[in-house]
Amino acid sequence: MTDISARPLRPARRRSSKWAQKLAPYFFLAPFLVLFIVFLVVPLFYALQLSFFRETMVGGIRFVGLDNYGKALTDQKFWDGVLLLLRYGLFQLPVMLGAALLLALILDSGMLWARAFFRLGLFLPYAVPTVIAALIWGYLYGPSFGPMTQIADYFGLPRPDLFNANTMLYAIANISIWEHVGYFMIIYFAALQAIPADFEEAAVVSGARAWQYVIYVKLPLIRGTILVTVIFATIGALQLFAEPYLLEALAPAVITSSYTPNIYAYNLAFVNQDYNYSAAISFVLGAVVAVVSYVFQLVSARREGK
């Protein structure tokens, strides 16, 4: 009895479960995809659209094609910001990533006392919000009661001036290095730990020295990871905003409303209410990020190919 009634049910059930299997991924994907489209894809195209228009006193909003981009190309303020980012990146990236790599190699060498403590301790600043880090360092640098000034006074040395046009860049870079060096160290360390021990034995047998083993074996093996970190760090550097935006309170003459392209875009939009030009600036910046990461990937793909 049960056999007979159960049998015709089976194929029907199978068919329904096949359908369920076909539909299920769309249900799982839908919530993410909806928000992804609304809050990421739409704003992206909206920004592109905005950048093609301009709001004028008379005549309202009108289509101006690439005019905003043309304006950006000849805008001294924008280029000063770009130039500043370039100087910033050329200092901050090598120092931060170099230090992170050095620290990771030391951790990985197995020659350290209290390795777990160092790993955790160096990573700790990453837990501090950027804004809080910036304001703590702001106080540390500060001329009124900052410890650096106190130490200089104690030894009768000239007070360090970290807020002039030349030094500010390094003061900002230091905050960002302090925050992120441990993060990149952790990433390098994990990659180094994944290198099989056989490589080291082979190096010992062939009589390699420690530094030779590092340069000719370890570093080439983690090249992919290094590339990813360079991309991440470049994207981060191009977006520089919070640190200078906070320090502006201490040095308003140095940190202008167009100090970095990001601060410029922010001020254009929320102080000048010029959303169209601001969108163009943001878009140029975003395009630079995309090109930079694409070129890095292309270069690495070509290298892997050889």
Binding site: V42, P43, L44, Y46, A47, Q239, N262, A279, S282, G286
Partner: peptide
């Protein structure tokens, strides 16, 4: 970069 999206 998130910042490219903040204004829109």
């Amino acid at each position: 970069p998130q910042t490219a999206l903040v204004v829109p």
